[in-house]
């Protein structure tokens, strides 16, 4: 029964992607078919991949541990001066576990938020407005990894060369939270 539901959702997503693009083609409007950005030919397959790929961080368990693995030994991650990198600023809001990764893979940093996190419709609203605390946590974990491994966080190009078209603005909103979303 569960498998049928997954197939049905996948099919719906595929049909949705295809339909949106078909409308775009029939009307001659390149905008009608876009998902993000200024010119994308999303396929049902790509849409399906997005949904099947677990692209629903807001629907995850509220008590989930988020984790990154850093390519430094454990003693360099927890030096005794509190949490590393941007995680330190969140110390009162998170629990953190640090443990060696298997093999030569460095150190795992696991963190989860204390207290409640948005769920259901409020999670969608929080994510859209950039106020979901999981976005802060994911960004902090990624930036902590960069600081531990390379000593800084790589900046995107500034000033941008892009233009504020409608599709571009939508993509800009997505990328402005580029380190705060995703699956970790």
């Amino acid at each position: 029964m569960k498998a049928k539901k997954v197939v049905a959702i996948g099919g719906l997503a595929a049909a949705g992607g295809g339909t949106a693009l078909l409308i775009g083609r029939l009307t001659g409007s390149r905008w009608a078919g876009r998902v993000v950005g200024d010119g994308y030919r999303p396929s049902g397959a790509a849409t399906r991949a997005f949904f099947a790929g677990g692209g629903a961080p807001s629907g995850g368990r509220a008590d989930r541990w988020h984790a990154v693995t850093v390519n430094v030994p454990p003693q360099e991650v927890s030096s005794g001066d509190g949490l590393p990198g941007p995680l330190a600023a969140m110390a009162d809001r998170i629990e953190v576990r640090i443990k060696p990764a298997p093999g030569d893979r460095g150190t795992e940093i696991h963190a989860r938020l204390r207290g409640s996190v948005p769920s259901g419709p409020s999670a969608i609203k929080a994510r859209a407005s950039g106020e979901d605390p999981r976005q802060d946590l994911r960004a902090a974990l990624r930036e902590t990894r960069s600081i531990l491994e390379i000593g800084e966080v790589l900046s995107p190009d500034k000033p941008p060369t892009t233009k504020d078209t409608p599709g571009g603005k939508l993509l800009g909103m997505v990328t402005s939270r580029g380190r705060g979303e995703g699956l970790i």
Partner: peptide, 15 residues
Amino acid sequence: ENSNTNPAITETLYG
């Protein structure tokens, strides 16, 4: 791991 300033997009698409 440290060069893509928008990791969420490919992480969501590809895992």
